[in-house]
Amino acid sequence: MQTLEPQTQTLQDTPLVIAGRSFSSRLMTGTGKYRNFDQMRQSITASGCQIVTVAVRRVQTNAPGHEGLGEALDWNQLWMLPNTAGCQTAEDAIRVARLGREMAKLLGQEDNNFVKLEVIPDAKYLLPDPIGTLQAAEQLVKEGFAVLPYINADPLLAKRLEEVGCATVMPLGSPIGSGQGIKNAANIQIIIENATVPVVVDAGIGTPSEAAQAMEMGADALLINTAIAQAQNPAMMGRAMGMATEAGRMAYLAGRIPVKAIASASSPLTGTIA
């Protein structure tokens, strides 16, 4: 009996390229909110991600639950994305970004200039400050950083950040850690259509179906933390999110059928039995 092999050449994808660096995985994960380091390591491995974000302040200050975080992961296998979480002003974020670059160097990534830029003065809803984010981004780009800014799903701001030299734009799907899913689909779609840098949907994704939805829209990548870290089985959820990211990307590349208001028979109407 002949075995039918899949046409793998039609399933190949181009890598995700950020600031000239290539990644095969389009899922980024975080290091916060895990119950312990073992769950964190297992989940990151299960997800297949290659980029992992780390809150600079928590590592620098040895915040509870983060002692030894820098050494808990194998940075020969993972690319560190230092983030400026906890910064409320542009000036603060710039200082923390510089610390993050030094932290990456100390952990063996001498050429790592990546920073996830977060400027969040709002403690209740954790919504990013568009003005502070733009100000910080302009300065950090001048200092040679590859800036990945976390923003509201604002198409005009996304384009402005791209114009000042940001390596990506990272619109939120819904508030951080809320698990509400993609609540800003229309604006995210506009950002995707107009961007010439990778668009990373960050924050709010709670389930693999929502991860797939974001990728089906044409997002280049996702950043998911809470939905994995706080799941009852984080490693299993990490694997599910990795698979959903891949499935959503493949669906986008495959091209979905148009939505129709009426039914359309899948079997031919000619040659039917009378």
Rank of each mutant, 00 (worst) to 15 (best):
T29L: 14
L73R: 08
G20R: 00
Q60V: 13
R95I: 13
F145M: 09
L156I: 15
Q12P: 01
A235Y: 01
G100D: 05
A72Q: 13
G65P: 03
G70T: 13
G271K: 14
I18R: 02
Q135V: 07
T270K: 14
L223W: 01
A55Q: 00
A212V: 08
A229N: 00
Q139G: 00
A85F: 06
A261L: 12
N187I: 03
R21P: 01
Q139F: 05
R256N: 09
L81Q: 05
K183V: 12
D154L: 12
Y150P: 01
S264E: 13
A72R: 06
N225C: 10
V197R: 02
G271D: 11
T245E: 09
S264F: 07
T245N: 09
N113D: 13
K183S: 09
L253H: 07
E163K: 13
I262Q: 15
A167Y: 10
L69E: 12
T14G: 04
L11D: 11
M215R: 11
R26G: 05
A229P: 01
G144T: 03
F145H: 07
L27F: 03
K105P: 02
C166Q: 08
T245S: 11
V56T: 15
V59L: 09
L106Q: 15
V115P: 00
T14W: 04
M217F: 14
V52W: 03
E216T: 09
L222G: 03
Q77K: 15
Q9H: 14
R21G: 01
A265C: 13
Q180W: 12
T3C: 11
Q180E: 12
G20T: 06
A123H: 11
P6K: 11
L69G: 14
S22K: 14
L253C: 04
N36P: 08
R57T: 07
L222M: 07
Q232P: 01
L157N: 04
P82V: 05
K260M: 08
G65L: 06
N194P: 04
M243E: 15
M250H: 12
L117D: 03
G20V: 04
E210F: 01
I191H: 05
S174Y: 15
A137F: 11
A211L: 09
F23W: 05
V52Q: 08
D13F: 12
D111Y: 06
R21W: 01
K105D: 09
S43W: 01
L27I: 10
T84G: 08
L117S: 04
A136M: 04
T196D: 09
R57S: 12
A195W: 03
P171Q: 06
M80Q: 13
I192M: 07
A214E: 09
M237S: 01
A251C: 10
E162R: 04
V164M: 11
G238N: 00
H66W: 15
E71M: 11
R95N: 14
A227R: 00
L148A: 07
M28G: 06
P128A: 11
T45D: 13
I192G: 03
V96T: 13
I94E: 05
F145R: 06
M237D: 02
L73I: 11
L269G: 07
L73C: 06
N83K: 01
Q12A: 10
L161K: 03
L11S: 08
E216Q: 14
D122G: 02
L148S: 11
A186P: 06
F114E: 04
L126I: 14
Q9V: 10
K124I: 12
N62T: 04
P208F: 09
